[in-house]
């Protein structure tokens, strides 16, 4: 068997292992209403390759051909088909301990990111519920001039994830990293639930700043 055939077989075997996971978490993101038809993206690292959802693919109805293989450290034509946010994912996978990343638009979190930065003048959300405190403690929000498909995103988002498992891009969505997709997905769900609790407490007229505890320096 020549090297090319061997590499292609290896890729097929890897995609065979990955596809059920991408499908599962794509479906879950859809069920929770964290994405529109084709927003968001999912990626994972396997050796020197990255596997990422195809640009424009429907995350809630992923097919095998929606998984694109592209190199982590070289330019290849996989990039043409891959998500528009491929370079962000690539940098997260290269610059942090992440082995998997996920991006989506959980609505309560996105809305709160604007409220916190503009009304509370705070560039982080500190959950006030017990699980949010326990698991996330402090979620950084970054505000960018061009919050879609920009070079700035490729630099700032991985930087924010060097010491946090999840971050919020103001008015856009979240990026989470994990040792696998399940872990990244978990951070997203905890974050969105924490956002929902904050909303409800705001509706009740509570002073959420007083409930933030000691995690501002976390």
């Amino acid at each position: 068997m020549n090297q090319e055939t061997e590499a292609s077989l290896q890729s097929s075997k890897i995609i065979e292992e990955i596809y059920p996971l991408f499908k599962k978490f794509g479906d879950l993101l859809r069920e929770r209403g964290y994405n529109s038809a084709s927003s968001g993206n999912i990626s994972t690292k396997r050796g020197s390759k990255m596997y990422i959802t195809r640009r424009g693919s429907m995350k809630g109805a992923l097919e095998l051909s929606d998984i694109i293989e592209t190199s982590l450290d070289n330019v290849d034509t996989g990039i043409v088909l891959a998500s528009t946010e491929t370079y962000i994912h690539r940098n997260i996978l290269l610059q942090t301990p992440a082995l998997a990343t996920m991006h989506c638009h959980p609505p309560n979190t996105v809305a709160l990111s604007m409220y916190y930065t503009e009304v509370l003048c705070q560039d982080n959300i500190i959950p006030i519920d017990v699980e949010g405190h326990y698991i996330l403690k402090n979620i950084p929000i970054i505000t960018l001039e061009k919050p879609t498909g920009s070079k700035e995103m490729e630099e700032k988002i991985p930087e924010a994830l060097k010491n946090y498992n999840i971050m919020i891009l103001r008015g856009h969505g979240v990026f989470a990293r994990g040792t696998n997709l399940e872990e990244a997905y978990n951070w997203i769900t905890v974050c969105e639930e924490a956002a929902i609790i904050i909303f409800k407490c705001l509706q009740l007229g509570m002073d959420i700043k007083s409930l933030q505890g000691q995690y501002s320096r976390w």
Binding site: K13, E17, R46, P97, L99, G178, T179, E182, E183, N186
Partner: peptide
């Protein structure tokens, strides 16, 4: 922190490298 399939192979090299480093 989350369950991996113990009989899968493609995710193990990255996992092992990360754990060895940490």
């Amino acid at each position: 922190p989350k369950m991996f399939n113990r009989f899968s192979f493609s995710d193990k090299p990255d996992l092992v490298v990360t754990l060895q480093n940490m």
